[in-house]
């Protein structure tokens, strides 16, 4: 054991520049990998948060609607009649998937609009008639939204049906794209790190080939011969994982916990729980990336 440890230490010192380069590559690639893991969890959290609150809005016809292809079931230039409106409300309330239906008249919508854009110059550009009457629908199970949406679309006097998903999905697809981009970059860098470890170990094994030859001759077991190499690359790998963990921790604290969480309170943000999950994955990936290239690189010298 003492021999193994001293060999490992000696080899790390002899290859100090290679060790540093391996650690840095591991550090950067694992950090990127960790970022993509954290992003994935953030997107999932936001999906869970919003999709749980999904409301469906059914917009009714106005005098301005109709005539175009997006006018739903509106008669051109005709508002939804009171009878149609009542029928729509009855049908919606009869649906077992619907939890509640709230009617919002265009006057209410206009008032809310004025409230929201109190200080904005956009305020003067809209009139009450440009707003729409609508039904706000809450669902029993927000995951089952499609049936309600498609039924509402066929009712007479409905201009359009909107659910929150249509608004959020483009956002999520951008976030997902970013995540995959980071992931691909991370994988490429991880591959480079693995090859680098393989080369470093090959070099070390080559400089020690005489010793390895004697070890094999006198009957040292393969595991005994491989152990110093494994330890060497494991040390480099673990240093890389530790550096990446520190980087991610700093990023999480300063970017998410101190800033994003404070300024955008209405969203669910990732925290230390998600961080530890990501670090666990990084640790496993780091160890695998250190061990496998080492085993491949030393196999040649162990072949009997």
């Amino acid at each position: 054991m003492r021999h193994t440890l001293s060999e490992t230490w000696l080899s790390l010192r002899r290859n100090v520049s290679m060790t540093i380069s391996v650690v840095v590559t591991m550090w950067v690639s694992l950090s990127l990998f960790g970022i993509s893991l954290l992003m994935m969890q953030q997107v999932n959290m936001m999906k869970g948060y919003w999709y749980d609150k999904i409301e469906i809005t059914v917009y009714l016809c106005t005098t301005l609607s109709g005539g175009s292809t997006q006018a739903g079931t509106c008669e051109p230039g005709q508002e939804t009649t009171d009878a149609q409106r009542q029928l729509i409300q009855q049908q919606l309330e009869a649906n077992p998937d619907v939890y509640s239906v709230i009617y919002e008249s265009k006057e209410q919508a206009f008032a809310e609009f004025q409230q929201t854009y109190k200080n904005s110059p956009i305020l003067g550009t809209l009139t009450v008639d440009q707003m729409q009457d609508s039904f706000r629908i809450k669902l029993v199970d927000p995951q089952n939204y499609q049936g309600v949406v498609s039924r509402a679309q066929t009712m007479q006097g409905v201009q359009s049906v909107q659910d929150l998903r249509q608004v959020l999905d483009p956002l999520f697809s951008v976030l997902n794209g970013l995540r995959w981009g980071t992931m691909i970059l991370a994988v490429l860098l991880l591959l480079a790190a693995a090859l680098q470890i393989g080369n470093t170990i090959r070099l070390t094994a080559f400089t020690r080939r005489r010793e390895i030859g004697i070890m094999r001759l006198v009957g040292a077991s393969n595991s005994y011969i491989t152990l110093p190499f494994l330890l060497e690359s494991l040390v480099a790998g673990i240093l890389g994982v530790a550096a990446a963990a520190a980087t991610l921790a700093v990023a999480l604290q300063f970017l998410v916990i101190d800033r994003a969480q404070v300024s955008i309170k209405s969203l669910a943000w990732i925290g230390w729980h998600e961080f530890f999950f990501a670090i666990l994955v990084l640790g496993v990936v780091g160890v695998i990336l250190a061990v496998i290239p080492t085993l491949i690189a030393t196999r040649r010298y162990l072949r009997v």
């Binding site: 094999r216 001759l217 006198v218 009957g219 009997v304």
Partner: peptide
């Protein structure tokens, strides 16, 4: 294969 070291411990070279 993994028993070969045991064989070599019985042979000096």
């Amino acid at each position: 294969q993994w028993k070969v070291p045991d064989l070599r411990r019985q042979i000096g070279t």
